[in-house]
Simulated assay, not measured.
Amino acid sequence: MKNIIINIVLTLGLSLSWQTLAAEPDPRQKLSELALSSERSAEHIARNQYRHPAETLNFFGLKPDMAVLEVWPGRGWYTEILAPYLKEQGHFTIAQFRQDDGTLKGERAKFWARLSAKLSERILENEAFFGTVHEVELDPPYLQPALATAQFDMVLSFRNAHIWDESGHLSATLQTLYDLIKPGGVLGLVEHRAAPLSDTTSVAVEGYLDEAYVIAAAEQVGFQLAARSEINANLLDSKDHPKGVYTLPPTLALGNYDRETYLAIGESDRMTLKFIKPAD
């Protein structure tokens, strides 16, 4: 009789354990659900086919309890996935464009400042969805205010490196990000990829960067390349467009000229690189 009671107790315990495991949401599945969230616009969801957010973030190794920095989120395309994913267990910070304090020069900088202001306003208005999102500014290569070193498990940058390179700040900005990451932490980087001519050279029209060049720049400041992925590759992108990457969607810089052609190509071919800051 005693053995029967013990077996019943063990059976019930195992059953409850399996029920508990089944009830726990799969973090990987949660990213897929957030990518299709009703909080996202139809336009943003339509870009999932080119940007593969759930697959990309899983490739980088994102976990819900991480401290994460997203660099230059723009309109918040990734922010609206990352913020709700991290809000319960993690810590999320965005490095916005420099705000317009009256000293900005150039229409592009002013446009970026407006994007950042709109995103900040949206986050405040939808706190229940976004949770607590900490904000700083990145005016390459410097952060304002400066952040303590080695505080992030992961730093994410989507299609920003070409802008830092254009201004001559790629190496220094990568150094800034390196210093912010904990030993053993990850830099996840997605960037428009130039057309290779050989193993050592490429043709980089406006907005594109050579993959080997980006890897070398990251390794020069101390990162180690952990993995690369073709998740965001686009073989239809010839990379020789009149206005470079901006010819393609979502910018469509040529307006209605050959619009259907460029829509059929889709967004640019992109490298997806996972770097590690050495643990020692």
Rank of each mutant, 00 (worst) to 15 (best):
S32E: 15
L138Y: 02
S37K: 06
P145C: 02
V136M: 02
V71Y: 03
I45E: 07
P84L: 00
P145V: 07
E70C: 01
A117E: 12
I45P: 09
A42I: 13
W112K: 13
W112Y: 13
P141H: 06
A109S: 10
Q49E: 13
T103G: 05
D139P: 10
R51Y: 11
E137T: 09
D139T: 14
S38W: 14
K63N: 10
A67N: 15
V133P: 06
P84V: 00
D26V: 06
V133Y: 04
M154D: 04
V68W: 08
N48Y: 12
G106I: 06
G61F: 07
F129N: 08
H91L: 14
E121C: 12
L31I: 09
P25D: 13
E43I: 11
H134F: 12
Y78M: 07
E33D: 14
V133K: 06
G74V: 12
L143C: 10
A46C: 05
D153N: 15
D153F: 15
T132Q: 11
D26S: 14
L124T: 11
K105I: 13
D139C: 10
D100P: 02
G106E: 01
K110I: 03
F152T: 07
K110F: 00
D100A: 02
I123D: 00
F152M: 10
V68T: 02
T56N: 01
W112T: 03
N48G: 08
A67F: 08
S32L: 04
R114E: 08
L62C: 03
A117Y: 08
S38Q: 13
K87G: 05
A117Q: 13
Q96N: 14
K87Y: 02
H52M: 09
W72L: 15
F152V: 09
E70W: 06
P53L: 05
A146F: 00
L57I: 02
G131E: 06
D100L: 00
L82R: 01
Q29V: 08
R40N: 12
G76N: 09
I81M: 06
L115V: 06
E33T: 12
R28S: 15
Q96W: 03
E125A: 14
I123R: 01
R40K: 13
R40P: 08
P27Q: 14
P27T: 13
P84Y: 04
N58W: 07
R122V: 00
T79R: 04
Y78E: 03
Y142I: 05
R28I: 11
Q144H: 14
L62R: 00
L119H: 01
M66Y: 14
A117R: 06
L86A: 09
H134Q: 12
W112I: 04
